[in-house]
Nucleic acid binder design. Structure first.
Length: 654
RNA sequence: GCUUCCAUAGCGCAGUUGGUAGCGCAACUGAUUCGUAAUCAGUAGGUCGAGGGUUCGAGUCCCUUUGGAAGCUCCA
């Protein structure tokens, strides 16, 4: 057989050979650093025996793909350590994940001290340097083997595999675990790891099943890489909006007001208002939207028509008791039906469509108490909501427009490169969660697929993520810890117009059902602000800053001039203040820097005499002396264009 | 909702085996009037998240409860 290696060279063998033996044949050194193989592009265990011609890439420890194998092996070492220290714990599953690995155990909860002990035991196991070997058993024998060991979760896993499957196990010095692999050749290969946390997880992610204890860890090829990773996590903590946003006094929460109900301070409010005014003007003046203003609550009847009462009642704040009260009201969890009735207010001609309605809409959702997080998961939020009532023939064009608007908003905020686009589809296996016919679902999904492809937007498809009335495009972003949240959603709805008996009159004088697009341009303001805090670590583009300029008089003598400068800035629509405390200039600059202000204007004798300001910015440090008018012209331009200036390096946290 | 961890002055923290409540920064007052990241001195501030229990005595031990963090599930 012929083995084609990565560099194009070809090795020929007369008999089948394992990847590790091929590596040894190439060089002993290569065999020592080999972690896995890639056979015709597929990850494979080093022990995999190759019998046919193929392309083989031997993955060494420095290859990023090797991390997956190192971490997977680390999770087995973790399992062995736990079994040694807690013999009653049962093992379940332990995969490698994006930035580490975890292993779920059926056990008593682990404390941090437990984790430290487990970590020490793992180091011991690694030092012992057990060779890792692989063997397989027929299904029935595999079940018996795991039953004998009392590993009931493993038994369940094997039972789900096909009857004729050969079940693979890995043995590291006597500790045997059911596993598909791949793994390193020895526990010695795990050189740098750390257990980071423990938490609860459900068996197979199902809250009705057993509660397991999950231990998270991370592993790298080198100690330095691990240290870098831990440093990145520290940096993430510093950027965390829930911490930084409170520290910068953008928002706060109060126990007696309630969970998931943040209060915005004047500073945070100013930022949100800047976003809101931008979006409203943009939609109304440039994208043809009409603004609506509709009630924050309605009778339950409304939600019964929309289907939300059946599909979403648990998530709503409802007043009154359906049994006792004549009328039950609920705070709105969405804006859809309200805007439909705006549409229905008058009879529409095909010439009136599309009707693009938009509203800065406050919504209420009764999240479970454990779901709340900072500004990203709250019980009351305000969204740049909108519904487009369109003719079926306009649907594709309008859907494209919504995507283009969302993309424009993301680009303006400088975050478009940080998002992923998802086509969220229904789940044909779970029909009762959705309304409408399978054909309609498949067709609309194909339309959206075509639109995304045509716009050249890369996307992934997610089954079972659709709204109950239609498929959608979700635009997701990761937070500092790598967890994804939906920022923007654009939904295709060919069904709800029927429920609300919405129609327009076509050219022939007939009533026709319109289609509806549910969409947001910039998502909800709370979540967007959270995202911006983390993206910019609090150092926002000038146009978004609540305080854009601070005038710093050298001493009390120049306060009057400072006030005059400040008045002129404010007259030009710039958010400016004066720091008139009797402090040294160095101290004032320090504080302005810690407040992450974009511009500081130092004024003293010289500036007052010349009617100038001495400009110091977050972006370039000392920018020199400028006439007041020219500074105002420059910053006005920067604000108008929503320029994102590059930050100055270093000088942090002195 | 579930599991673990956490809660001490505005913020960040210390507080030994149970024995008088502490530090840094911020705040306030006074002095200082200063040229690009911290001027000096002084003052005030706490039912130790809340409720109950054990004890001669609880910030510390036990129970209940509220809030926060991470994770699971769910979602914008």
């Amino acid at each position: 057989m012929k083995i084609t290696l990565k560099d194009g060279s070809v090795k020929e063998y007369n008999e089948a050979k394992s990847i590790i033996d091929i590596a040894k044949d190439i060089s002993e050194g290569l065999a020592r650093v080999a972690c896995a193989g890639e056979v015709n592009g597929e990850m494979a265990d080093l022990r995999t025996v190759i019998a046919n011609d193929c392309e083989l890439n031997i993955i060494t420890a420095t290859d990023p793909k090797a991390l997956y194998v190192i971490r997977h092996t680390a999770s087995h070492v973790l399992a062995e350590a736990v079994k040694r220290l807690f013999p009653n714990a049962k093992v379940t599953i332990g995969p490698a994940i994006d930035d580490g690995f975890y292993y779920d155990f059926d056990s008593e909860p682990f404390s941090r001290e437990d984790l430290d002990k487990i970590e020490a035991e793992m180091k011991k196991i690694i030092k012992e340097g057990h060779e890792i070997t692989r063997f397989t058993l027929p299904r029935a024998e595999a079940i018996a083997f795991m039953e004998e060991k009392g590993e009931s979760f493993k038994v369940e896993l094997i039972q789900d595999l096909p009857e004729d499957a050969e079940i693979s196990f890995y043995d590291q010095g006597g500790f045997v675990d059911l596993c598909a692999g791949p793994h390193l050749m020895s526990t010695k290969g795990v050189k740098a790891f750390k257990l980071t946390s423990s938490s609860m997880a459900y068996w197979r992610g199902d809250s009705s099943k057993a509660r397991l204890q999950r231990i998270y860890g991370t592993a790298y090829n080198k100690k330095e890489e691990l240290a870098e990773h831990l440093e990145r996590m520290e940096d993430a903590k510093r950027r965390d909006h829930n911490r930084l946003g409170r520290e910068m006094e953008l928002f706060t929460t109060v126990d007696v007001i309630g969970q998931g109900l943040p209060l915005f301070t004047p500073k945070g409010t100013k930022m949100i208002m800047k976003l809101q005014r931008w979006i409203e003007d943009l939609e109304d003046n440039e994208w043809g939207y009409m603004r609506t203003r509709t009630p924050l609550m309605a009778k339950s009847d409304l939600y019964k028509i929309s289907g939300h009462w059946d599909h979403y009642k648990e998530g709503m704040f409802v007043f009154g008791d359906e049994e006792k009260d004549k009328e039950v009201y609920a705070l709105r969890p969405m804006t859809c039906p309200f805007q439909y009735y705006v549409y229905k207010n008058s009879q529409k001609s095909y010439r009136d469509l599309p009707c693009r309605y938009s509203e800065t809409s406050t919504l209420f959702r009764n999240e479970d108490s454990g779901e709340m997080h900072g500004l990203t998961r709250v019980r009351q939020f305000t969204i740049s909501e909108g519904h487009l009532i369109v003719r079926p023939d306009q649907m594709v064009e309008e859907f494209k427009g919504c995507l283009a608007l969302a993309k424009y908003c993301l680009e303006t905020l400088g975050v478009n490169s940080d998002v992923t686009y998802h086509l969220s589809k229904w789940d044909p296996e779970n029909k009762e969660k959705y309304i409408g016919e399978p054909d309609v679902w498949n067709q609309t999904e194909q339309h959206i697929r075509d639109i995304l492809t045509e716009l050249g937007i890369p996307f992934v498809e997610d089954v079972g993520e659709a709204a109950f009335y239609g498929p959608k495009v979700d635009i997701n972003a990761k937070n500092v810890y790598g967890k994804e949240d939906t920022m923007i959603t654009i939904q295709w709805d060919a069904l709800l117009a029927e429920q609300f008996d919405m129609y327009y009159i076509d050219q022939n004088g007939d009533k026709v059902r319109p289609y509806i697009i549910h969409r947001t341009s910039m998502g909800c303001y709370e979540r967007t602000l959270a995202w911006l805090i983390e993206k910019y670590a609090g150092k926002f583009p000038t146009w978004l800053c609540a305080e854009q300029v601070r005038v710093l008089p050298i001493s009390d003598k120049y306060e009057e001039y400072a006030q005059k400068v400040c008045r002129e800035l404010k007259k030009a629509g710039i958010d400016a203040t004066v720091d008139s405390r009797s402090e040294k200039i160095g101290f004032k600059i320090r504080e302005a820097r810690l407040d992450k202000l974009p511009y500081m204007l130092v004024v003293g004798q010289q500036e007052e005499a010349d009617n100038t300001v001495s400009v110091r910015s977050r972006f370039a440090g000392d920018e020199g002396v400028k006439p007041i008018d020219s500074f105002i012209a420059d910053i006005t331009e920067e604000i108008r264009n929503k320029t994102i200036r590059e930050e100055m390096q270093a000088e942090e946290n002195k």
